[in-house]
Each structure stands twice: as structure tokens, then as C-alpha cells.
Amino acid sequence: MTIGTGAAAPKADRRRGVRPTRGYRVFQAVNAVILTGVVIVTLYPFVNIVARSLSDEAYLIAGKVNLVPRGFDLTAYKLVMSDSMFWTNYRNTLVYTVVGTLIAVVLTTCYAYVLSKPQLKGRGALVGIAVFTMFFSGGLIPNYVLITSLGMKNTLWAVVVPNAINVFNLLVMKAFFESLPVELEEAAAVDGLNTYGTLLRIVLPLSKAIIATMVLFYAVSFWNSWFSAFLYMDRLDLFPVTVYLRNLISGATGAQSAGGVADGDAVQAAATLQAVTIVLTTLPILAVYPFIQRFFVSGVMLGAVKG
């Protein structure tokens, strides 16, 4: 009993006696300062936008709104939320995001799973084709001609199809599939599962983290996308809410370039509406992110390193 206690005591003493070195403490302090600065820089614009959206127009014109709302006023929210076109565009954004994310995740998963197989003939060429598109594209005019000739102009597919596969997401998912033990698929083959059965019943259940990461990446991309709709659509009732916001911004810019005191007030009023629209547009992403944060973090780490 005494021997056991004596053997365990040095280990406990070593655990209690370990102290971080001075260099490590300095690193921790610098790291904390840098990360705090990043958090402040990241949060400041959003907090400022929220404060502007809740402030009275007179305080905005006087430039007195920073991080705290002045003259609490919800008039701008009532104006935006009473606009039927805003809700039409908002609904379009939801549809484009859900359909686009579903298609993109399915295509990216299938393509990445195929590319993760070293025995695939022509694998290098397929990877090369995908990587080539990261650096070179057909150009704006050829893409417009292609979408128009395919009859996809003023349709959902004009927004979804051109952005169906993101090569960065593809490579991250490919790296994750390559990190899975080969023995799992070999055992599935022995049990009689074909390629599709292995993917659906073995691989995908083990890939919840990376799939959640891809869903978040694609959902944010489609939610924030405006240029494709602005380029391939010419009907207001088909625009996403980001184009609605873009039109507000361009309207304020036009008023500002015209000059004059009245126009300056109009710019400030438009700026208030912009702030309200930005807040309403970002709320769904902010609401969804906490529920998939743990999958997002682990998914990025798993897809970034081939184990």
C-alpha cells in the first residue's frame, strides 16, 4: 500500500508542478489580443447596422448613431415588411437556397466520392478538369449566351445550375472520403453491397459532419448570391432578396450623386431601409448556424487533413 502511494505521488507532483513556459504565456496573451481584435472587427459592422436600423432618421442624418440605437424607431421595419415585393423576393431566396443547396450537395458528394477512388481510370483528368475551372472560366458573355440558349433565363435553374459544384468544396469532401478506412468498404463489398449501397449505407452515415459543412457553405453562398439572378433575370418578381437590397443601394447612390440637401436626406432614409433589409436578410443564417456549428468545425478539420 505504501509502495503504491509512493509510486503515484511523483506522478501527481509532476502534474501539479507543470507550469507553462514564459514564451508560451506570451504566445497565449498575444493570441488572446489578436483574437479579441478579430472578434471586435467582425462584430462591429453588424452591431452598427442593427443600431442604424433601430434608430430615428434624424439621428442618422446627424451622424450620431454608432453602436447604440438613438431615438428607438421601428418605422423602417414597418415600411420594409409592408412591401409585398420584399416578401416575394424573400420567398424566392428561400426557394433558390433550398433547391440549390440540395442539388449542389448531392452532385458534390457523388463527384467527390468518385474522385476519392485511386483505382478510377482517368481520375487525374477528372481532378484536373475540376481544378482548371478554379482558375479559368468561359467568360461573362459566353455564359450568358449559354444560359439563354438553354432556355434557362428567368428560371430557377439560371441561379442553381451555374453554381451547382464549388471546386473548393469538392476537394475538401474528396479529402474527407479519402481519409475513411478502406476496410469499411471492403467489408461492405464482402457482405454483398454494391457501390451505391456502400455510399448510402456505409459512407454517408459516417459523413454527417462534412455534409453539414457543405450544406452550410452552399446555403450561405446561394443565400448571398445576387449577380446570377441580376444577370439572367429581368423580372422583379423573380429576383432574390439580395437583388432587392442591391436596388436599394443603387437608388441611394443615384440620389447621392445628384446632390442637394433633400437628396442627402433621401440617402439617409434609404440607408435606414438598407440597414433593415440587411438585418432581415441575415437573420435566417444566424438562426441556423448555432445548430450546425459543431458539425461545421469538425467537418472542416476532417476534410482538411487526410488521415
Rank of each mutant, 00 (worst) to 15 (best):
T2A: 15
T2V: 15
G6T: 11
K11F: 14
R14M: 12
G17L: 07
V18A: 15
R19D: 08
Y24R: 14
A29R: 15
N31T: 13
A32Y: 13
L35R: 11
T36K: 11
L43T: 06
L43R: 05
P45Q: 09
V47M: 12
I49C: 07
S53K: 01
D56H: 08
L60A: 01
I61P: 02
V65L: 01
V65A: 00
L67M: 07
G71T: 01
F72N: 03
T75S: 15
T75F: 09
A76M: 03
A76C: 10
V80D: 00
V80G: 01
D83S: 13
S84Q: 10
W87Q: 00
R91I: 10
T93S: 15
L94E: 00
Y96C: 00
Y96Q: 03
V99W: 03
I103M: 13
A104E: 02
T108A: 06
T108R: 02
T109C: 10
C110S: 14
Y113K: 08
K117H: 12
Q119T: 15
Q119H: 11
L120A: 12
G122K: 08
G124D: 12
V127W: 07
A130E: 03
A130K: 05
T133P: 01
F135W: 10
F136K: 05
G138L: 03
G138S: 01
G139R: 04
L146D: 05
M152S: 04
N154I: 05
V159A: 02
V159W: 02
I165N: 04
N169M: 11
K174F: 08
K174P: 04
F176P: 03
S179N: 10
L180M: 14
P181S: 08
E183W: 06
A187W: 05
V190P: 03
T195D: 13
T213P: 03
T213A: 10
L216A: 09
Y218F: 10
S221M: 10
F222W: 00
W226F: 15
F230S: 14
Y232W: 09
D234A: 11
R235F: 09
D237C: 06
D237S: 12
L238S: 05
F239W: 11
P240H: 05
P240K: 01
V241H: 01
T242Y: 02
V243K: 00
L245Q: 06
R246Q: 12
L248A: 00
L248G: 00
S250W: 07
G251I: 02
G254R: 08
G259M: 09
A262H: 13
D265G: 13
D265L: 15
A266K: 12
Q268E: 13
A269G: 10
A269I: 12
A270C: 07
I278W: 00
L280C: 07
T281Q: 01
L283Q: 08
Y289Q: 10
Y289F: 15
P290I: 06
P290W: 09
F296T: 06
F296R: 04
F296D: 03
G299P: 02
G303N: 06
A304P: 07
V305K: 11
K306S: 11
